[in-house]
């Protein structure tokens, strides 16, 4: 499905990003596995891809850092000779009630989750414009649509990503580059593992499919958006949330 394609997945050492890297690789794409701090885990992802006959390498970069990102994209293009797919997945949480949220908690989340998407998108758009093709897939969140107490910073960043997705889609459409967002609901990852059993049970009542999603559920939608099958889809936000937000 993605034979000969090249992909960069940010924050791919674990969770949803890892599942996306593995999924794209399983479809034949060569994958740059970006990580910020977890080098060992990123290498494990690369090993898993290579063991399954795929091609991948791990590359460190903090997406909030503009220079880091330029180097990240430059090295990826050099390694692969092209860049067909960018998945902006890297994200962090610093949850707190608005009244208690510190400035650095706000800044850290906005810088990684929103500015990071801007940085990576800007850096790859040059290559994709030259190629006259490209796929950019941003991992947003349903809380960016619906809001969520205790996550003002995260929600603002994710809502920003959805707006950025639409604008980038309009700006780059004439160069055959599509830009879409995937908005996961509650997915079983390290990020949601911190939630108490009580909170999780309460969550199920709000999810029509009455369970948490799996990272693979998200990865499969990303795979669709990265493929030729989604040629006529751009600027959209696809919810993968068990029906939580409609």
């Amino acid at each position: 499905m993605l034979n000969g394609k090249t992909a960069l997945v940010t924050g791919a050492s674990r969770g949803i990003g890892k599942a996306i890297a593995l999924e794209l690789a399983s479809q034949g794409a060569k994958v740059a596995v970006n990580f910020a701090g977890s080098e060992d885990r990123a290498n494990q992802v690369v090993n898993e891809i290579v063991e399954n006959g795929g091609e991948a390498f791990a590359i460190q970069a903090n997406v909030a850092n503009t220079e880091d990102v330029q180097e990240l994209v430059k090295r990826t293009v050099k390694e692969f000779g092209s860049l067909d797919i960018l998945v902006n997945n890297a994200g962090i949480t610093r949850d707190n009630l608005l009244m208690r949220m510190k400035e650095d908690e706000w800044d850290d989340v906005i810088n990684t989750n929103l500015k990071g998407v801007f940085n990576c998108t800007k850096a790859v758009s040059r290559q994709m414009m030259k190629q006259r093709s490209g796929r950019i897939i941003n991992i947003a969140s349903v809380v960016g649509v619906a809001g969520n107490p205790g996550q003002a910073n995260y929600v603002a960043a994710k809502a920003g990503v959805i707006g950025l997705t639409k604008t980038t889609a309009k700006e780059l459409a004439s160069r055959n580059i599509t830009v879409n967002a995937v908005a996961p609901g509650f997915i079983e990852t390290d990020m949601t593992e911190e939630l108490s059993a009580e909170v999780k049970e309460g969550l199920f009542d709000r999810i029509p499919l009455h369970r948490l999603g799996k990272a693979e559920d998200v990865a499969k939608v990303v795979r669709f958006l990265a493929s030729e099958d989604s040629n006529y889809v751009t600027g959209q936000t696809i919810h993968v949330d068990g029906g939580m937000v409609m």
């Binding site: 040059r126 414009m129 030259k130 700006e171 004439s174 160069r175």
Partner: peptide, 11 residues
């Protein structure tokens, strides 16, 4: 040229 054309030209 549109704005994007100029960006590409510069590239």
């Amino acid at each position: 040229a549109d704005s994007l054309d100029v960006v590409e030209l510069v590239m």
